[in-house]
C-alpha cells in the first residue's frame, strides 16, 4: 500500500500517471472520477475558483476516508488528489481513482470517496464571479 494515497496539489493533476499507479495484475476494473471547474454556479457566471485547505487536517481526514473505503469495499488500490490555489474553468479540481478485481466495488468505492471528501475534508472554494465579486462557499 502507498504511504500516502491522498494528497493536495498546487499543480495540474496528472490523471494518466495516477491511473498507472493503480495498475496491478489482479485488477479487472479501474474507476476514476474527476471534478472540473465549471463556469457557473447558482445562476452566476464564474471566471475561476480559488481553493484553500487546512493542509495537515485535510491530509489526515483524506487518508481516513481512503482507509474507510479499503475497509468497506473489495478494492485493490486507491488514490485521491485535490487541488489548492487558483484554478481556471475546465481544470480538474479533484481526482479519485480506484482499482479492484471487479467493477462493482470500484464504482461503489469511487462514489463513496468523492462524497465523503466533499462533505468532510477541510477544503474551501472561493468563486470569482464575472461581475467582479467573489465569495467563499459554505454550504
Amino acid at each position: 500500500m502507498a504511504m500516502t494515497s491522498f494528497s493536495l496539489s498546487e499543480t495540474v493533476i496528472d490523471a494518466a500517471a495516477l491511473t498507472r499507479e493503480l495498475a496491478q495484475a489482479g485488477a479487472g476494473a479501474c474507476v476514476t472520477f474527476e471534478g472540473w471547474v465549471r463556469d457557473h454556479n447558482d445562476g452566476r457566471a464564474v471566471l475561476r475558483l480559488g481553493y484553500q485547505a487546512y493542509a495537515s487536517l485535510a491530509q489526515s481526514e483524506g487518508e481516513r476516508i481512503l482507509a474507510e473505503a479499503r475497509d468497506k469495499f473489495a478494492i485493490l488500490d486507491v488514490r485521491c488528489v485535490h487541488r489548492v490555489g487558483l484554478l481556471e474553468i475546465g481544470e480538474p479540481a479533484v481526482w479519485v481513482g480506484v482499482s479492484a478485481a471487479h467493477r462493482g466495488a470500484a464504482f461503489d468505492a469511487c462514489r463513496y470517496i468523492i462524497d465523503e471528501v466533499k462533505s468532510r475534508v477541510p477544503i474551501w472554494k472561493n468563486e470569482h464571479y464575472a461581475d467582479g465579486e467573489s465569495g467563499w462557499l459554505h454550504p
Binding site: 471534478g35 481553493y51 485547505a53 487546512y54 487536517l57 485535490h82 479540481a93 479533484v94 468523492i114 471528501v117 466533499k118 462533505s119 468532510r120 475534508v121 477541510p122 477544503i123 474551501w124 472554494k125 467563499w136 462557499l137 459554505h138 454550504p139
Partner: peptide, 10 residues
C-alpha cells in the same frame, strides 16, 4: 485551535 466553516471542496 481551528474553527472550521462548512467545507466546499470537490
Amino acid at each position: 485551535v481551528a474553527f472550521i466553516p462548512p467545507v466546499s471542496g470537490g
